[in-house]
Amino acid sequence: MAGIVGYGVYIPFYRIKVEEIAKVWGDDPRAISRGLVVQEKSVPSPDEDTATISVEAARNSLKRANIDPQKIGAIYVGSESHPYAVKPTATIVADAVAAAPELTAADLEFACKAGTAGIQVCMGLVDSDAIEYGLAIGADTAQGAPSDALEYTASAGGAAYVIGKNNTLADFEGTYSFTTDTPDFYRREGKPYPRHGGRFTGEPAYFKHVLSAAKGMFEKMGTDASDYDHAVFHQPNGKFYIRAARKLGFNEDQYQTGLLTPYIGNTYSGATPLGLAAVLDIAQPGDRIMAVSYGSGAGSDAFSITVNDDIEQKRDLAPKVQELVENKSYVDYAVYAKFKGKLRMAGLTQH
């Protein structure tokens, strides 16, 4: 089967702490931090969007892959915050990484699992020998309405994966998906902020799909939690991630490395891909990884992955997740609101 030839990540430089947001809305920061298991989140600067994040992640993935970008046969960018309503982000990435025009490219949207959907598409194209290499990206600059619970977690970041059969650093053993029509979270056309179903987003949405996909993967592979060295899940907050991991039988040593939300927030389509990248940054040859995404609406993609010997030669060729997590500067709420475009003057329209 296809495998991961290279991976790359990007996380914006700026951060805002939970207590800074709570101070503005009169919330208890300690209760927020404990309840969501989030301390701070990344904030994109005014000149950063899903396209720029995708380009940076893609370039880093190609550094590790060490392939000619002209050999890329497909590029998919999964996001729910594409900068254009009608204009693909994927073509911007293709041009920026100097890919040949003889490729297929598209933007994908499935809330927070669009990035892993792109990985699955690339896996299929590679396995069928339709292309030699595919580039799958999950990236977002997530939105949360002022004073909404999402404002404490909605952040920005992304990860890119070069998928192919040759010179892989990790190999896919299998994938399994679980999908239903569960409208727990949505944003209508033209609306700046999404709406969510509150507690409804837990049991019938996130947990049902993540657990079902993971258990389906277990059954398909004939495995259980004890067969994996690492586990990564979608992380709308740290609380859901940890609870899902424990329900499936994973312990802290297995799930801790991929848990990034406490330090950078929920990067939406970038969340599971970034968590997986953090694991690949420290994984040893022979390690087995389970990765499970989740997208509202609703569905989950699960992957069983085995790391091979080439990881040792490739992982230091591009910035690691932890380096970007630690490279940061804090902003206050006023700067954050300006950067995120939360301040809009009446009568002005954006073109």
Rank of each mutant, 00 (worst) to 15 (best):
M1K: 10
A2R: 10
V9M: 02
Y14W: 10
R15Q: 03
R15F: 03
I21M: 07
V24S: 01
G26T: 11
R30G: 15
S33Y: 02
E40R: 15
K41F: 05
P44V: 07
T50G: 00
T50M: 01
V55D: 05
E56P: 02
E56S: 14
A58S: 15
R59C: 08
S61Y: 01
S61V: 00
K63W: 06
N66Q: 12
K71Q: 13
Y76M: 07
S81R: 12
S81M: 13
H82N: 10
K87V: 12
P88I: 06
P88S: 13
T89K: 04
T91V: 14
A99F: 00
A99D: 04
T104W: 11
I119R: 04
C122A: 15
G124S: 14
G124F: 12
V126A: 09
D127R: 10
D129A: 12
A130I: 15
I131N: 05
I131D: 07
E132F: 04
L135S: 08
I137A: 00
A142D: 02
Q143T: 15
Q143D: 12
Q143I: 13
G144H: 03
G144D: 11
S147Y: 05
E151S: 04
Y152G: 04
S155A: 15
A159V: 05
A159P: 09
A160V: 08
N166S: 14
L169F: 05
F172E: 11
G174D: 14
T175N: 14
Y176K: 12
T179S: 13
T180H: 11
D181I: 11
P183L: 09
F185Q: 07
F185D: 05
Y193K: 06
P194T: 07
H196P: 00
G197C: 07
G198A: 13
R199W: 08
T201P: 01
E203M: 10
F207S: 01
V210Q: 07
G216M: 06
M217E: 14
E219V: 02
K220F: 14
A225F: 04
D229R: 06
F233I: 07
H234W: 00
P236E: 03
G238I: 04
F240S: 10
R243P: 01
A244P: 03
K247F: 08
G249N: 06
Q256W: 11
G258D: 09
L259N: 08
Y268I: 10
A271M: 04
T272H: 02
P273N: 07
P273L: 05
A283L: 05
G286C: 09
A291L: 10
G297N: 03
A298V: 01
A298R: 09
A302C: 03
A302Q: 09
F303L: 13
F303C: 08
S304G: 12
T306D: 01
N308L: 03
D310T: 03
I311A: 07
D316P: 02
K320F: 09
Q322E: 15
Q322G: 02
E323T: 14
L324D: 06
L324M: 15
V325H: 09
K328F: 13
S329F: 12
S329R: 13
Y330R: 08
D332M: 06
Y333F: 15
A334W: 02
A337S: 15
K338F: 10
K340L: 15
K342W: 13
K342G: 09
R344D: 07
R344N: 14
L348V: 13
Q350W: 04
H351V: 10
